[in-house]
């Protein structure tokens, strides 16, 4: 607000007539305060749906709070100390990170490859570009349920196909690594096209003459891709990594609906694919109804996301600082 440029009347005008003065005062008030009013909706909504729940969750996490109980008791950081020693919690952290890596790495590589294909001269280019986005407009729940059936042990199509080529059926839902792969497939199926379009948009911003020059110098397509396209896409890649991080660490619907039947919230009999958000839900709601403990999980999830976000920021700063001299060197080298 320090830079506010109000058109203030130069000096105080003499109170000649009351009406202009009142109007002037009103307009001054208007100019001075209405900006606050304009931005207020965001802050009010944030306070109600963002800040307040955050603070309240923290307050709850300091209590032994049975969801139905009438009088929660204050226990300080007990929930946190118990949680840090809870092997099931760390198990869910590893699951979350494992699924995150398994889904994000192939997803971004595939998206990059797809974008590169779509960037060429193709027939029905717009049609292809729209097609890759189709998985993204289907509902997550529907995707998860269908994939849950595809990856069934006995009646699933994946195991049937494996059987055709002579491979024994895999226990997709009760083998830790297999369930990670299955869930990652789901995430990838849904998000690869979306990322490909973002990459495609960035690719189209790369000047064509760079490629022409490279082609004249005798660089083939692969060489052009790795030495021109990828380095210039760095900021976009970072953006996609961050977006995937946020989504990946909060993964819930896919693993939850991948499992069906009793206690699906466990993500398999030995918690093979239980993510942090599922663990939070299991504790805060059925079957434990331990609201305090669940809130503590929520806060540690928040902390984990903050840490990963901080690492992201550090990497961006690094890359941002390193990128310019790097490209400069390349240009010099090519001359």
């Amino acid at each position: 607000m320090a830079l506010q440029l109000d058109a203030r009347p130069p000096g105080t005008p003499a109170p000649r007539a009351t009406r202009p003065s009142r109007a002037g005062r009103l307009s001054r008030i208007d100019a001075k305060y209405s900006p606050y009013l304009y931005i207020a909706p965001f802050f009010v909504i944030f306070a109600i749906f963002g800040a307040w729940p955050l603070a309240y969750t923290f307050w709850v996490s300091l209590h032994d709070w049975d969801l139905l109980g009438s009088n929660p008791t204050f226990i300080g950081a007990d929930n946190y100390t118990r949680l840090l020693a809870d092997s099931d919690f760390w198990h869910s952290v590893v699951n979350t990170l494992g699924i995150f890596v398994l889904s994000t790495v192939p997803q971004l590589l595939a998206a990059l490859w797809l974008a590169n294909l779509l960037n060429r001269q193709l027939r029905m280019r717009t049609g292809w570009r729209m097609t890759v986005l189709v998985p993204n407009v289907t509902s997550t729940a529907a995707v998860a349920i269908v994939f849950g059936v595809l990856f069934g042990r006995e009646f699933g199509m994946v195991n049937w196909l494996l059987d055709l080529v002579g491979v024994d059926g895999i226990e997709w839902k009760s083998n830790r690594f297999a369930s990670w792969v299955a869930i990652s497939t789901m995430v990838d199926w849904r998000w690869t096209g979306y990322n490909a379009l973002i990459f495609l948009a960035a690719m189209q911003a790369i000047p064509r003459d760079l490629y022409e020059a490279a082609a004249i110098d005798g660089a083939n397509r692969a060489r052009q891709f790795w030495t021109i396209t990828v380095p210039l896409l760095k900021p976009t890649i970072i953006f996609c990594v961050i977006i995937s991080t946020i989504g990946g660490l909060q993964l819930f619907t896919e693993p939850r609906l991948f499992h069906s039947g009793t206690n699906a919230i466990r993500g398999g009999p030995m918690r093979e694919s239980q993510t942090m958000t599922m663990y939070m839900f299991e504790n805060a709601f059925a079957p434990y109804y331990n609201f305090g403990y669940g809130s503590a999980v929520a806060w540690l999830l928040f902390a984990l996301i903050a840490i990963v976000a901080a690492i992201n920021v550090l990497i961006i700063r690094r890359l941002g600082a390193g990128a310019r001299p790097d490209t400069g060197k390349r240009k010099g080298g090519s001359r």
């Binding site: 006995e154 069906s260 039947g261 009793t262």
Partner: peptide
């Protein structure tokens, strides 16, 4: 067939 699961119903 895990009870109450999709697979159970198919079975």
């Amino acid at each position: 067939y895990g009870s109450w699961s999709e697979e159970w119903v198919s079975a």
